[in-house]
Each structure stands twice: as C-alpha cells, then as structure tokens.
Amino acid sequence: MKEHTTFQAGNPQTRIKKSLEKSAPSHRFYSQEHLESDLHGNTDRKINDKLIRTFDDVQLLSEGDLIYSMISGQGALVSKKHAGYLFTQNFVKIEPHKDVSKKYLLYLLNENTKVKKQIELKLQGSMVRKVTISVLKDIVLPVLPNFEKQELIGSLYLNQLRLETLKMKRLNQEHLVMMETLTRITDGV
C-alpha cells in the first residue's frame, strides 16, 4: 500500500502538554465513537467529547480525511462535524495518491477479505492486537480498477452503510411507538 499512499500518525497523547490558560487553543479528541459515527453517517448521535487546552502543535483532522483506527482496524472518512478534531497515536491519517479513491481505499480496508487477511496474519502471535503503520504499508492491494469505478464502488459502500443506519433508526422508532402503545393498553386494563 505504501506505493499508493502516505501516512500521518496521530499525536502521542501523553506528550501533549495540557495548559490551564484560557488563551490556549481548545481541541476535541477524535475517538472510536466519532469514527463509527462518521463511517455510518450517524453524526447526529450524541457523543461526549474529551477536550484539551494546549499550545502544542497538534495533528488535526479535516473533512474528508481517511482516518484509520489502529485499535479496531476500521477506517472512516471524517465528517464535517468532526473536522478540526485532534487525533492521537491510536489513529493514522491515510492520504491516497491521486490514482486511488479515498472511498475505495476505505472499502478495501474495512471489507476486502484479502486485505483484512493480510492485516490479521501480521498480528498473529502478537500480545497487543494493534495495527501499526508498517503493517498498513506492507499491505498488497488488489489490482485497482480505474478511478471512476473506484469512486462508484466506494460510494455504493458508503451509501449501503448509511442505508443500514437509517433502517436501524426506523426500527428503533417503531419499537418505541409499539412499546408506548402496549403501555397505554396495559395501563387501561
């Protein structure tokens, strides 16, 4: 994968010097919950943000960045809502070269069995199951289709995830309505 991308590691959280000064810039930490929210297009979900004030130069995310969790082995495209969030060493920002679509690369990292198997093989025998940048760099990507086809596949993948999220929201709402109805019926008995 190293011939198709560049990698930017997040800030080591323990090295960020916290400031108590009100003039220090305030940053929100990007978490696994934010990643899942971005991946599934569920950014209206309430997440308790962890904040830090620091004068340190820190790595921040931009809308559309491809972010990958070294802990969960899952990636997402950063939403507008999470642009400007600080990312730690538990994440890596992956910037594909111009011949590779971010959406398609995201699909490969999250869903392609050959790519996932390569990652899994590198982690076998390891006590700490954390993906490293070197593991990601060593991934051999399948033959890439043309850019337009990559974009199409990636867009279909993201649309499917969002559709599944909307269906789950609707099912949860229907469940709540049914439970309220049952409660009214049983209270009336």
Results as ranks from 00 to 15, higher is better:
116 K>D: 01
116 K>T: 02
118 Q>R: 03
118 Q>E: 01
119 I>P: 01
120 E>K: 13
120 E>D: 14
121 L>I: 06
122 K>G: 03
122 K>E: 15
122 K>Q: 11
123 L>F: 00
123 L>V: 04
123 L>N: 05
124 Q>T: 10
124 Q>F: 06
125 G>V: 00
125 G>A: 08
125 G>P: 08
126 S>N: 11
127 M>F: 07
127 M>R: 14
128 V>P: 00
128 V>K: 03
128 V>L: 06
128 V>W: 10
129 R>T: 07
129 R>M: 14
130 K>S: 03
132 T>K: 04
132 T>Q: 05
132 T>C: 03
132 T>A: 02
132 T>I: 03
133 I>P: 00
134 S>E: 14
134 S>A: 09
135 V>K: 02
135 V>W: 00
135 V>I: 15
136 L>C: 08
136 L>G: 01
136 L>T: 01
137 K>N: 08
137 K>G: 12
138 D>G: 09
138 D>M: 03
138 D>F: 07
139 I>H: 05
139 I>P: 06
139 I>D: 04
139 I>V: 13
141 L>N: 01
141 L>M: 09
142 P>K: 05
142 P>N: 07
142 P>Q: 02
143 V>E: 13
143 V>D: 15
143 V>A: 15
143 V>W: 06
144 L>W: 02
144 L>D: 00
144 L>I: 01
144 L>C: 05
144 L>M: 02
145 P>T: 01
145 P>M: 07
147 F>I: 06
147 F>L: 10
147 F>D: 02
147 F>Q: 06
147 F>A: 04
148 E>K: 11
148 E>W: 03
148 E>N: 12
149 K>Y: 10
149 K>H: 12
150 Q>M: 03
150 Q>F: 00
150 Q>E: 00
151 E>H: 05
152 L>R: 11
152 L>K: 14
153 I>W: 04
153 I>A: 02
154 G>M: 01
154 G>Q: 02
154 G>R: 01
155 S>M: 11
155 S>P: 14
155 S>E: 14
155 S>V: 09
155 S>R: 15
156 L>P: 03
156 L>K: 04
157 Y>G: 00
157 Y>W: 03
157 Y>R: 01
158 L>V: 10
158 L>F: 08
160 Q>F: 12
160 Q>R: 05
161 L>G: 11
161 L>V: 14
161 L>M: 06
161 L>S: 07
162 R>K: 11
162 R>L: 09
162 R>M: 08
163 L>T: 06
164 E>W: 09
164 E>I: 09
165 T>K: 14
165 T>N: 08
167 K>M: 03
168 M>E: 15
168 M>V: 13
168 M>L: 15
169 K>C: 10
169 K>S: 12
170 R>V: 04
170 R>S: 13
170 R>E: 10
170 R>Q: 07
171 L>W: 09
173 Q>M: 11
173 Q>S: 06
